[in-house]
Design a protein around this nucleic acid. Structure first.
Lengths: 152, 152
DNA sequence: TATGTTCGACAACATGGTTGTCGATATGGT
DNA sequence: ACCATATCGACAACCATGTTGTCGAACATA
């Protein structure tokens, strides 16, 4: 008969795991030329992708276009994106990552790979795969609307 | 030779797992007498425990006492805690969960147990245990300072 | 009793979210 | 060609949750 484990530990462990990874990411990012990148930057930049508009970004992040516009302003001030008028539609202002923005995304991907490798060394490939597979089954795809989610 | 899985999926999966559980929790809470409980309420109430003060709560949550005081005000407005002067120290105002607050915590624990059972049915006891054990090893204990963490 | 620390409160501000409104620009039906 | 409608970005006002900094009152102790 198996020990009854309390259910409340699971969410705390998942959150702690996420925090651990993101904290480690930003420690490494700081040492690789992005000392003032913040979790929100990476999320939003990921959602910007190759280029979008404020309204579209809002839809991707699950927030209003006004909120997206503020995020874009912050990202622009940080030098991660630039804005340019769309010649084919005078209403639109296209947002694209700068070279520095693309560098941030590339470094992040690289660091996340290293962190996964670190977990594999610590826990074994099987455990990590089991975790990934299990979470993939009980969740409905990766959601990008994290920044706003908690206080909702 | 194993397939190289990209590292960036792991944090997204962990976050998605956390969100899935907390979303399900609040769906259930809504049906059990707590329709307007929000994630923050549970966290803060958990940190309040049997009773504390604003300054102590701030230390537990890793925020300033001012932020803790605002949180307490919100919790009090929602009817989850009550404040009373400490007869032994005229500076202190003790915060305690109300009956409703204790009910929220009890229901939450109960629902989290049910959710874990649901995951065990879906994934198997082994997978869930593997996940719990693995996360327990790579993280340093449950942190209660979640609400503030993201925007930092 | 004098000094230092802790408590809670208040003010001012930053950030990131919301609604609501607005003028300018596309778009599609008549 | 024209007009109704939808969309885009901007602006204002507000809410929520943090932050610093300051303060008086109450405790603790040398």
């Amino acid at each position: 008969m198996s020990t009854e484990r309390p259910g409340f530990a699971l969410p705390l462990l998942l959150l702690a795991g996420f925090q651990t990874l993101v904290d480690a990411l930003h420690e490494e990012l700081a040492e690789r030329g992005h000392p003032d990148a913040r979790p929100m930057h990476g999320f939003a930049l990921q959602a910007v992708g190759g280029g979008t508009t404020a309204a579209e970004l809002g839809r991707r992040l699950g927030v209003t276009k006004q909120a997206a516009a503020k995020t874009i302003a912050a990202l622009e001030a940080a030098g991660y994106v630039e804005r340019a008028a769309d010649p084919t539609d005078a209403r639109r202002v296209v947002v694209r990552p700068t070279a520095r923005g693309r560098d941030l995304l590339a470094r992040s991907a690289e660091i996340f790979d290293e962190l996964r490798t670190r977990w594999v060394r610590e826990l074994g490939e099987d455990a990590v795969r089991t975790m990934e597979d299990a979470l993939g089954r009980v969740t409905s795809g990766p959601r990008l609307d994290a920044p706003s989610w908690f206080t909702r």
